[in-house]
Simulated assay, not measured.
Amino acid sequence: MTNPINSAVLGTIASLGNMGTTESRTGKGNWFEAFGEAWGKALDTQADAITAQSDVVSQGGDKPSDITQLTTESMRMSFMANSSHSSIDSVSKALETMARKN
């Protein structure tokens, strides 16, 4: 399984290049909006992984390994949600600081 953080967030950030505009699913926007959208996609992907593993458990997959995998996916979601909040908050504070200096 590919890491949702690497594939969605870092891939989008790398493709942004500079601080200009970029296309997003909602039309034209800036790189900060694309950054948030990438985090949203990564979190959606992780939520899908949790749902899939939850389906395994609900269909009788009550082996310790199945439950441990569900716990692992849930904890990964928690880590990703905290990381997305922290990174978006940090970037927005940096943008605010830059705006004040201009």
Rank of each mutant, 00 (worst) to 15 (best):
A14P: 03
E37F: 00
S74L: 07
L43K: 04
G60K: 07
K101R: 08
A52N: 05
T45N: 08
T22G: 07
S58H: 01
K93R: 15
S7D: 08
M98V: 15
L43C: 03
N82G: 15
T71H: 01
N102Y: 12
R76F: 06
M77C: 01
S24V: 13
F35Q: 04
N18E: 13
L10C: 14
Q53L: 05
M75T: 04
V9T: 10
D89F: 14
G27E: 00
S58N: 05
Q59L: 09
K101E: 08
K28H: 05
R25S: 14
T26A: 10
D55M: 12
N102P: 12
S86G: 12
W39T: 02
S92P: 08
Q53P: 10
G27K: 02
M19W: 06
S24K: 10
Q59H: 10
M75G: 01
T68P: 00
T71S: 06
I5H: 03
S7E: 07
A52D: 02
D62C: 05
D55F: 06
A49H: 05
D89Q: 13
I88C: 15
N30K: 14
N102F: 11
D66C: 00
V9G: 04
W31Y: 15
S90G: 11
E23G: 15
T71K: 05
T97C: 12
A42Y: 05
G40W: 01
L95P: 10
D55V: 12
D62G: 05
T2Q: 06
F79K: 14
S84Y: 03
A8W: 05
W31D: 14
I50L: 02
T21C: 00
T72L: 12
N18M: 11
D44N: 07
K93F: 10
R100V: 08
G20H: 02
M80K: 03
T97D: 15
P64M: 05
M77P: 00
R76T: 05
I67A: 02
S87Y: 09
G40S: 06
Q53A: 08
K93C: 09
L95M: 15
G36H: 03
M19K: 10
A81S: 15
R76S: 08
K93G: 13
I88L: 15
T51K: 04
M1Q: 07
E33H: 11
T45E: 09
A94C: 15
F35G: 03
Q53I: 08
N18S: 11
P4K: 04
T72N: 11
M75Q: 03
F32A: 10
L70F: 01
T21D: 04
I5F: 06
E23S: 15
I88N: 11
L10Q: 14
T97K: 13
Q53E: 12
N6S: 09
D62V: 08
F35I: 07
N3S: 06
T26K: 08
E37Y: 00
R76H: 04
L16W: 00
M77Y: 02
L70N: 01
G36S: 02
T2K: 01
L10R: 15
D89T: 14
S65G: 06
D55G: 09
M98W: 14
A99M: 12
M1V: 10
A8P: 07
K101N: 06
L43F: 02
K93D: 14
Q46K: 09
S54H: 04
T12N: 02
I88T: 13
E73K: 12
S24M: 12
K93T: 11
T97G: 13
A47P: 02
I88A: 13
P4M: 08
P64E: 02
